[in-house]
Design a protein around this nucleic acid. Structure first.
Lengths: 244, 244
DNA sequence: CGTTACGTTGAAAGCTTTCAAGCATCGTGG
DNA sequence: CCACGATGCTTGAAAGCTTTCAACGTAACG
């Protein structure tokens, strides 16, 4: 937890999908920031049942949020990519009810939870942003719940991959290369509520229809519109969003 | 939209699960409140695809939040009971991505969305509360997603009814009588991601095990602990919560 | 070169849906 | 007052989607 890039020079802020911040806001966020942390793929950022004194914003890399039943069955709740905030739920209860695990090497920005009071008191705009981010996560969960509850296996898979693809593009994740979503079929299965075996067969169908290509531990979306259409999904509404 | 009970005398505030508000906060909430609205069972409070200038807090009655696929398949996302806030998602995008429909006669408190700025600016504690409420909804959705994705049909049903039961008790919904959850088996099916037919057979099993009794368009929980145990669910963590 | 993680396949078993039909209640119009 | 349509709850049987079981191939790694 050494490096501490000045927020004003954060490469993420250059991306057009993030709203611009005032100097005042940037100053505060800068002081709110404790430092940066680097995790390797597979490492846990947050743990179900534990409480954390920190909030995190993903700077680079991929992660996912999940929770498990007592007997070990696992459900992936959502994926985290650069610009996403993690750990806010810890604000309402001591213990976090889910875990966050890195899918790829991960760099996160670390904030001190006990400065939240200060944030709400002195920077109402940022307070609003936190509510905004939370409501946005809620909306994504609504979509996932609709998907897992009411879509067929192939529709679910199509929706999921289209969803992740769109989100990653909106924050420029692919860089200059092609976008490779760094997940295994087990991750897909645990997101869709399916078995790995059936997930494998379902992804194969999507590949046969030339909608995706499955690489080693990664998925490449070939036809985003085709996926969205198959799933009957119109995409997430885009709006300039805050980056805390 | 006529009556306007003073917030300080709101019967909900007498319930111990809500945190106490300062005079200052009460004054603001009072001014934030535009009035009250009464809906009959089946009426829509909010509509997917439309935008609303209002936020609502349920004062009495039951409602549910849901969204549908283009071909009509419906997923119920959550249930709303007294003290719950509705419409916050409309803050982040013009159009709401879900609908809210009354399950029983409903009385709601109406707030003006464009006063949210004022709220965040002059009442940081209430701003925090909004984030808190949003994060809480998020946590409930996490639980539902885990349930629909990874629990068997009977576990899902047990979880759902235990969940609703606990929540309703925490805000004193049953009054002095027994708690009757005013839902049809179609609602249960659309919440669990199952067909009505299979839902019917599943509920019958719960009834045979003496965990619930199904009445006409209503469910009575007989053995809350039994349901929670069957579902492998430990209940929602309880904490004093805000009432806006 | 053995081990482990990931992906792939085929077949049987099982859970859930769909299809069909029937019963009961309730409000409405004739 | 009664027929009738609409809504909700039940049931049985067949069809279908998904899981489980079992095996096998490959690539990466120590």
């Amino acid at each position: 937890m050494l490096r501490k890039v000045p927020c004003a020079q954060c490469p993420l802020r250059a991306i057009s999908s993030f709203r611009s911040f005032s100097v005042d806001e940037l100053d505060f966020v800068q002081s709110f920031k404790v430092g940066e942390m680097v995790l390797e793929a597979g490492a846990r950022l947050l743990n179900q049942g534990e409480s954390s004194a920190h909030l995190y914003t993903i700077l680079s890399g991929w992660a996912f949020r999940h929770k498990t039943l007592p007997d070990g069955r696992r459900q992936i709740l959502n994926y985290l990519i650069p610009g996403d905030l993690a750990g806010l739920q810890g604000t309402i209860a001591g213990e976090l009810q889910h875990s966050v695990e890195a899918l790829s090497p991960l760099v996160v920005c670390v904030f001190q939870r006990d400065q939240l009071d200060d944030l709400f008191r002195n920077h109402p705009g940022l307070g609003f942003d936190l509510t905004w981010l939370s409501a946005r996560e809620e909306r994504m969960l609504d979509d996932h719940l609709l998907s897992v509850g009411r879509r067929s296996a192939i529709e679910r898979a199509a929706y999921l991959l289209a969803f992740i693809h769109q989100r990653a593009l909106s924050v420029g994740v692919p860089g200059k290369g092609r976008l490779m979503i760094p997940i295994t079929q087990q991750h897909v299965a645990d997101t869709l509520g399916l078995s790995v075996v059936h997930t494998n067969k379902t992804l194969k169908k999507l590949a046969q229809q030339r909608l995706i290509v499955w690489h080693d531990r990664a998925c490449e979306v070939i036809d985003y519109k085709g996926l969205a259409h198959l799933a009957g999904w119109s995409g997430e509404p885009e709006a300039p969003r805050p980056l805390i």
